[in-house]
Design a protein around this nucleic acid. Structure first.
Lengths: 197, 197
DNA sequence: GGCTATTTCCTAGAGGCTCTAGGAAAGGAA
DNA sequence: TTCCTTTCCTAGAGCCTCTAGGAAATAGCC
């Protein structure tokens, strides 16, 4: 019987699919080994431990997500860019809930530094800032507004994925309206002013 | 040697403390039994399984959190109420990260129906709606704005707790400014209008 | 108080998980 | 072919959840 031909990359891809299917916390070394018809211990030649496997899923997800967002935002500005960004963000999370959940993990600096660079995360921040500058914001409003946007997007997706929205009103409609509201918000951002407060 | 005098309530309280200390996913039946100087199997007389233990933590957290928020919001309206609500929400989550994480779990209807009523969750929704009505909002804007607020608060706390805010700017300052912005947003909410769009 | 019923806690054990140590076999390179 | 490296294996320790069935402590009742 030939070998399975494993590699860290193949394992990560399969683990990511598994995470999207059955949830990130159901991704185990055992289950993954089973999927490849191989013993648990075999995977430890390719991946240090379960934690590393999850970090790899997160980095993969971060890259993919940023790519999608960048493609959608390219060439747009203002509300167009905001809506494109937000929809790409949400759609990726809905398409790949397991990968998305992984991106929300807390990393130690070594973990980020170790495998791959965290290019995905960094590019993502740049995209956000570019968008916000189009609204005429500058530091520290840039950071504040960026945090608010990230929080809102993430919170919305998290609640949606975890079934937190029980009311019958369609989530898609609520989401669209929230984007309208955020656009208004960014246009009327209470700008930082040394005298003010 | 006497008995430990366990009960579902005592276990839940201890589990909640443990969750705040070491993280919700570190709360195990084994660890909890160890804490009481008792064998694992003993806990199963009081609690059905690990899952139920976590649900109980969530319900406890939900009650406590809603109580705090209600106390702070009482007698306030408009921006005062918004800020009081938001700060109480955030402070509870920072004080009790494990309990808070538990409240974000996905429940099956039976789980909610089983133990206790989900009074906490329901009251929380009512509080939000009361606050929003003070801004002159009505359905479906009430639902939309409520979702946006919940998403923003949750997303902010989640990112803060998971170390997602790397920028040196103080989170407290950002938060305060975001509340200013949300107030502006609610005052300028793009109201639902059948002709519009 | 004594007796009984219930609750609390125990031992024993099955089964799943992570991860290490050390060995065998497959594939590539010289 | 021969050697070297990588891939995969067996074996096993340790921790976890959860069940079954039994012993001991408490509570209720006469």
């Amino acid at each position: 019987m030939g070998r399975a031909g494993l590699s860290a990359a193949k394992l990560t891809e399969a683990a990511a699919e598994m995470a999207d299917d059955v949830g990130l916390d159901q991704v185990t070394v055992s289950a993954l080994a089973r999927r490849f018809g191989v013993k648990d211990a075999s995977l430890y030649s390719h991946v240090k431990n379960l934690r590393e496997l999850r970090v790899r899923i997160a980095l993969l997800g971060g890259e993919e997500m940023t790519d999608r967002i960048a493609a959608e935002v390219a060439g747009r500005a203002g509300k167009d860019a905001l809506v494109a960004f937000a929809n790409a963000y949400r759609q990726y999370a809905l398409d790949h809930p397991g990968r998305y959940a992984a991106t929300q993990m807390r990393f130690t600096p070594e973990e980020v530094a170790d495998h791959a660079d965290s290019a995905g995360m960094r590019r993502s921040v740049e995209l956000t800032y570019g968008m916000l500058r189009a609204y005429g914001l500058a530091e520290p409003d840039l950071t504040d507004a960026g945090r608010l946007l990230r929080a809102t997007f993430h919170g919305y997706i998290h609640l949606e994925l975890s079934g937190g929205f029980n009311h019958p009103r369609d989530v898609q409609d609520s989401w669209a309206r929230s984007l309208d509201a955020l656009h208004v918000l960014l246009e009327n951002w209470p700008r930082h002013d040394r005298k003010n407060r």
